[in-house]
C-alpha cells in the first residue's frame, strides 16, 4: 500500500517534471511548418530548428559567457560567504543579531528596485558590459542565501574539533582550514550549486547591464534573438531550451550525489 503510493508519487514527480520538457524536446524536432498543424506529431524528425537556432544566435559565445559569469559568481559568493558564515557561526560579538537580520533585509530589496539606481553606479565604475559587473551583481544577490546555508553547516560541526587543532598549535584560521572546512565541504558544494544556478539563469541584471553580445549570458541572449519583432519560431525556441538545459542537467547527474549529501549535512532550519 505504502510502496504503491510511493511509486505513484514517483510517477507523478516524473510526469510533472518531464512532460513540459519532453514536449519542448518533441517540438524542437518538428519542422516549423508542422508545428501549428493539425497533426500533433511531426511527420519526421527534423534538425532544422537546431540549425536555425545555431545560425541565428552566437550560442557558443553565450555559453562561454554564462559559464564564466556563473563560475566566477560562484567562486566570489562562496568565498565571501564562507568567511561571513564562519564569523556568524564561531563568534559571538556585538551586533551579530542585527547583522544576521540585515542579511534578510537585504534579501528583501527587489532587483527591480536595484537595477535603475545601479545603472549609473555601474557606469561610473566602468562595469557595464563587463564580466566583473555581472559577477558582482549576481554575487551580491547570492551571498545572503549562501551565508545562511553555510552558517547552518558550520553550526553543525562541533567546535571541539577546531579547539583540539588549536591546542596542537594551529592558528584559528589554520584550524578552520584544515578541520572545519573539509568537513563542511559537501555543504559548501551544495551551496555553490545554488549560487551557480542562480547566476546561470539570472535575467534582469544581465538585461540592464549589457548592451552588446560580448558578455551577455544565455537567458537574455536567447530572448533577444528568438523573439524577433516579426517572427517567433516556436521550434527554434524549444530547440534553444533543450540546448540550454541539457548541459546543466548533465552536470547535475555527475554531481547529484555530492549535492544531496551536502544539503543534508546542515539543513536550513531558520
Amino acid at each position: 500500500m505504502l510502496a504503491a503510493s510511493i511509486r505513484l508519487g514517483a510517477a507523478m514527480v516524473l510526469i510533472w517534471t518531464l512532460a513540459p520538457f519532453l514536449w519542448a524536446l518533441l517540438t524542437s524536432f518538428t519542422p516549423e511548418n508542422e508545428i501549428t498543424g493539425e497533426a500533433r506529431l511531426p511527420s519526421h524528425l527534423s534538425f532544422d530548428n537546431y540549425v536555425y537556432a545555431w545560425r541565428a544566435t552566437p550560442l557558443p559565445l553565450y555559453f562561454l559567457n554564462t559559464l564564466i559569469v556563473a563560475g566566477l559568481t560562484t567562486a566570489l559568493s562562496i568565498a565571501c560567504s564562507i568567511s561571513a558564515a564562519y564569523s556568524f557561526s564561531r563568534y559571538r560579538f556585538a551586533g551579530r543579531g542585527a547583522l544576521i537580520l540585515g542579511l534578510l533585509v537585504i534579501y528583501l530589496f527587489p532587483a527591480t528596485l536595484l537595477v535603475i539606481p545601479l545603472f549609473p553606479i555601474m557606469r561610473t565604475l566602468g562595469l557595464l558590459d563587463s564580466y566583473l559587473g555581472l559577477v558582482l551583481a549576481h554575487a551580491t544577490h547570492a551571498v545572503p542565501f549562501c551565508v545562511w546555508m553555510l552558517t547552518g553547516y558550520f553550526d553543525a560541526i562541533p567546535r571541539d574539533l577546531e579547539e583540539a587543532a588549536e591546542l596542537d598549535g594551529a592558528t584559528p584560521f589554520g584550524a578552520f582550514r584544515r578541520v572545519t572546512l573539509p568537513l563542511a565541504m559537501p555543504g559548501v558544494a551544495a551551496t555553490a550549486i545554488f549560487a551557480f544556478l542562480y547566476s546561470w539563469q539570472e535575467y534582469l541584471f544581465v538585461l540592464f547591464f549589457t548592451t552588446g553580445e560580448a558578455v551577455r549570458t544565455l537567458p537574455v541572449g536567447l530572448q533577444v534573438f528568438l523573439s524577433g519583432e516579426l517572427d517567433v519560431r516556436w521550434g527554434a525556441i524549444n530547440a534553444q531550451s533543450v540546448i540550454t538545459t541539457v548541459p546543466v542537467v548533465a552536470l547535475f547527474m555527475l554531481l547529484q550525489r555530492h549535492f544531496v549529501r551536502g544539503l543534508t549535512s546542515g539543513a536550513l532550519k531558520g
Binding site: 545560425r55 544566435t57 528568438l226 517572427d231 519560431r233 527554434a236
Partner: peptide, 9 residues
C-alpha cells in the same frame, strides 16, 4: 550602433 532584430536569422 544599436540595433534591434526583426528577424534573428
Amino acid at each position: 550602433m544599436w540595433h534591434w532584430l526583426t528577424r534573428p536569422d
